[in-house]
Design a protein around this nucleic acid. Structure first.
Length: 358
DNA sequence: AAGTCGGGGCT
DNA sequence: AGCCCAGACTT
């Protein structure tokens, strides 16, 4: 064990007390705080990855209602699980969660393991989620370092490492190991995050209301606005597609499932063709050839722009009416608007679906 | 270490 | 347009 700890020169017992007392008083009333059920805590932590609390709340209620227990989720149909996640994004989170829950049923008698290594080895459980669930559900004194914690501690301890770099997280984990309350690790970890969400915000932190202001080195030097240090990342790539909305005389449409891996894996969509694959004037014969249909008419629907974190989609939505549709593979279905409702669609294709309802 | 993976809300 | 959000995984 190397002893290269950063200097933590604040009054640690006082800091713990100030933080935990504030958290006990001011914490928000959130559905996953009703009890310490490890399954519920786990679900909430997965949902909260890169996702705001207000966004998660309705999803959490519906998800727990549909899958109230670890066993229920383990036994659930994968498509229904994906449908419950529809609109939340980062869909591999829920596929990993179900795989992990099935592991817990198979290997740990359906009890979420308390052992850090065992829990941390489950699919989709990284360093943050590991510490968060073990501290909140089981009271273990493990660090749970997320973006909030790095921002808060970078200011309090005046840490200037670039938080965009992967190895920087370890510096903060070491700091938390020195600071954390062993009497109440749960309130300590959640207090740091709650502080980051409510007071020690990215812009314009409310330092005058901060319960640990007296401990904060950045505040005492007046440089809280310039922390944390974070380098910016690369911008999105542009991608353009035709989206083929093919409707037959019965009002049914072709829907296809995306591949098992990659972007929006296993989600359903109207067929897409990269615009660079086929020139616009050859689109009609291309559709007729590829989908073996007889186009009666072609119209343009409202185009859709959709921005991911790393891609910008420009969707040229083409509606073609035809006599008869046929599937050309196992990943396709011919469905009525009603039936499409039960399939998990990414938000970009929900926008298209809503146009068809009008 | 850098990319991939969603979506929404804010400035 | 860019940034942020209770990050994990792949290459």
């Amino acid at each position: 064990m190397k002893n290269n700890q950063l200097p933590v020169t604040i009054n640690i017992p006082q800091f713990r007390h100030d933080l935990i007392t504030w958290f006990e008083q001011e914490q928000r009333d959130l559905p996953w705080r009703e009890n310490q059920d490890p399954y519920r805590v786990w679900v909430s932590e997965i949902m909260l990855q890169q996702t705001k609390v207000e966004t998660v709340i309705p999803y959490f209620h519906r998800f727990i209602q549909s899958f109230p227990t670890l066993e229920a989720l383990a036994e659930a149909d994968e498509q229904q699980v994906l449908k419950a996640w529809e609109g939340l994004g980062y869909y591999s989170r829920v596929r990993n969660l179900q795989a992990a829950v099935r592991e817990v049923v198979a290997d740990y008698n359906a009890k979420v393991p308390e052992d850090a290594e065992q829990f941390g080895n489950l699919k989709g459980v990284g360093p943050y989620t590991q510490g968060a669930v073990l501290s909140i559900a089981y009271g273990k004194a493990e660090p749970a370092v997320d973006g909030n914690v790095m921002r808060v501690l970078s200011r309090i301890l005046l840490i200037q490492e670039d938080i965009a770099k992967a190895k920087t997280r370890k510096i903060f984990e070491q700091a938390v190991r020195q600071l954390i309350s062993h009497e109440n690790p749960s309130a300590f970890n959640q207090g740091l995050m709650e502080l980051g969400a409510l007071i020690c915000t990215p812009r314009n932190p409310s330092c005058l209301l901060c319960p640990v202001q007296v401990h904060c080195k950045a505040y005492s030097e007046g440089i809280q606005h310039s922390l944390p240090v974070k380098t910016k990342k690369t911008k999105q790539k542009d991608e353009a597609y035709y989206v083929l909305v093919m409707e037959d005389k019965d009002g049914k449409y072709i829907l296809e499932q995306r591949p098992n891996e990659g972007l929006l894996a296993q989600m359903w969509q109207f067929p897409m063709v990269a615009t660079k694959e086929v020139s616009e004037n050859l689109l009609e014969p291309y559709i007729m050839e590829r989908y073996q249909i007889n186009c009666q008419s072609i119209d343009q629907l409202q185009p859709v722009k959709h921005i991911f974190s790393h891609i910008k989609w420009d969707l040229n939505v083409i509606k073609c009416r035809c006599d008869k549709l046929r599937v050309s593979g196992p990943a396709q279905q011919i469905l009525s608007l009603d039936e499409i409702e039960s399939y998990p669609l990414p938000v970009s294709h929900q926008k298209i679906y809503k146009q068809l309802l009008q």
